[in-house]
Design a protein around this nucleic acid. Sequence first.
DNA 1: TATGAATGAGCCTTCATTCAT
DNA 2: CATGAATGAAGGCTCATTCAT
Lengths: 219, 219, 219, 219
Amino acid sequence: MSGPGRPYIDAVASPPTRPALRARYDRRRDDVVASAAAVFAEQGYHATSIADLTDATGLAAGGIYHYIGSKEQLLIAVCDALMDPLLAGATALEAEQLPPEEELRALVGLWVGHVATHRDHMVVFQQERHVIEHERQWRAVRASRKQFERMLDEALARCEREGGVHFADRDLTMRGLLGMVNHLPQWYRPRGRLSPRQIADGFCDIVLAPARDHMRKTP
Amino acid sequence: MSGPGRPYIDAVASPPTRPALRARYDRRRDDVVASAAAVFAEQGYHATSIADLTDATGLAAGGIYHYIGSKEQLLIAVCDALMDPLLAGATALEAEQLPPEEELRALVGLWVGHVATHRDHMVVFQQERHVIEHERQWRAVRASRKQFERMLDEALARCEREGGVHFADRDLTMRGLLGMVNHLPQWYRPRGRLSPRQIADGFCDIVLAPARDHMRKTP
Amino acid sequence: MSGPGRPYIDAVASPPTRPALRARYDRRRDDVVASAAAVFAEQGYHATSIADLTDATGLAAGGIYHYIGSKEQLLIAVCDALMDPLLAGATALEAEQLPPEEELRALVGLWVGHVATHRDHMVVFQQERHVIEHERQWRAVRASRKQFERMLDEALARCEREGGVHFADRDLTMRGLLGMVNHLPQWYRPRGRLSPRQIADGFCDIVLAPARDHMRKTP
Amino acid sequence: MSGPGRPYIDAVASPPTRPALRARYDRRRDDVVASAAAVFAEQGYHATSIADLTDATGLAAGGIYHYIGSKEQLLIAVCDALMDPLLAGATALEAEQLPPEEELRALVGLWVGHVATHRDHMVVFQQERHVIEHERQWRAVRASRKQFERMLDEALARCEREGGVHFADRDLTMRGLLGMVNHLPQWYRPRGRLSPRQIADGFCDIVLAPARDHMRKTP
DNA sequence: TATGAATGAGCCTTCATTCAT
DNA sequence: CATGAATGAAGGCTCATTCAT
């Protein structure tokens, strides 16, 4: 019976406070989230029942709720497990102060690599995008997405400002790049023809070429 | 999801046979499909109940079933309403026998324009991609998708064969282009800064530039 | 999926608008409420499952929800079915402008009779009193209870003002009377030794006697 | 509710046998029971989860079960904590051999005082009355209630036999008195206008007045 | 003693679908 | 054609209870 006036403070599973137990709790919670990501990716979030997660995790229904609070919170956890390390990596990269184009390539490389290792999470993220964009309890995830896009745009902008490249339409280029990588989970296979590294470089070549092309034309 | 071994002969709504009635029936069915596309796009297919469609269409539950057979068939209808005219347009284009690059630009233009006018359908299509790719009753829709991708690849290949352009990695380029356009519904707005035409040309510039860049470097 | 910010606007079953259907709907809804009152009274509200109501009403679970919106709304409906006619009767009585003591006896008679014919509702009302008094969605029911108590108090006050009786402590007397009648469902049996009429008069005798007693002592 | 045919030998928490430990155990058990009474009174027995008791007692779930055996046994303990001292007090009173009316006033005083100090227990008792009256494992509590009502009736009967008062309908009077006091928890507040003593006397005045009234009329 | 992880039955509710009218 | 009453199988979630630690 959720209390009055707290419509979005979802029942949250309460972790133990003693540090030793807490560590085990966190580990198992991560397991649950990872299992869920795989099942959600295959069947879709809505088409996945708690019973399906029961099979995937080896926990009974009640056991799952020991860790997640609600099915939707589990979905949020999956998205966080996608975005948090990505943002952390990108932030660390920014701190390295690489030359502009090098930084862009590093950022795209990081990102493509992350998508490759988090294919399930990424598929789920895309599937549920309409929810993420509209509902209040998704604000944090939404903010992460925006934050990353801002960092990507900034990397492109630096290329223009400090790297001597000029995009015909930087905004369009950024959205194009975003699309290329977001679409990756639909076709990337771990032992496919191209490594994440190669894919990332290929994408960078594509978006940087017109820019350099332009340079040559307007010296 | 319908269990394995169950015949996929879904209950199909039976349209009237007399032509006059048939026309009206088809018109109303299209209305239902269009309404459904909008609601599915906003809430997601699974999160949309027949009651929601009841609100959106003005028909009562029973009335909707006059036109759709089942909720999943309605989803298929939405996807067909997306793919059928697109494929028809692309096929007509092929028949025009334009010069390679011109044909590519026309194809992408057609496609981007279609996405712009069918944003809802496109969102739904992407959301339910995991179902489309895996389940038997979706074979036809799946085939349409593959068919379009084949036509796109062929257009790029023609550019190489007959247009004198050379892609560093044509397959990667095609997948990149696919991603750019598939991602369009996430940011395109009808009265935004760029028209569909401009977006399409921008994308083509991006993928063609490295190719031309290459030409210049390897004369 | 209850919308944001509307925590207490419970899903309400939507009755049909066409008058003929509406009448049938209301009749059946009343049946459901009456059945529920009986089961709630015997087992308690919380201990009663929807399955129990399924047995009691002959409707399947979904059918019940066609009429009630939620289990709690059903509980509210039971309380309304208790309070609404009682208040209506009491209001009609007030309009009759009877002499004070006669009016009091009529009011208590009405009330005791109502409890006798609505034993189940009354038992439920008492059982769930803690909810009724505390939760927001119960405001209306709470208001009805208060309204009736006000009318009872006014009847006693009129006896003092215009009827020449004087209570040692009118407030205590009112609360006593309230207790006597509220306790009725615990022991009243339809074909018991005393009729509702007799019970009501007996209670009135009890509360009026000290008042008259007093008169005699202080002439 | 526990199904029929199941033996009512509920799991009972086993207290330690060594007297020193036993004393501490009993003390803590009483704390648990008192906390439970408060929570049950506010939320209702069924609406209270073990987790709620966890919050109220500071013990974890397992800890609570050291003291209570089962949730229902806890409810029984709450009722026992209400009835046992009341019966003990009433029995002690009987042994004092007071004059009839004095004894009645003393008994009602004792009772009202007890309700005032055990408001929570009383509320719970009333809420769960339907269970108490019907289920087998509640026989003991039921017997206590009947025993007290018998003592009350006897006190009234003594007033008639030996005190020279005559009730128009003693049974009805007793039930009225029962109702007045049972209803007390709904309105009594510790620092209200009337003390328990005053309330008890007020109630006695009310029920005794008609009796004396009668005497005067039929000398 | 006390903890908290884990169970699994059961609860309320939703929903696609059918069918008499 | 269209309605809305009705079904019944899930679905998400809760909760009393147990048990290894």
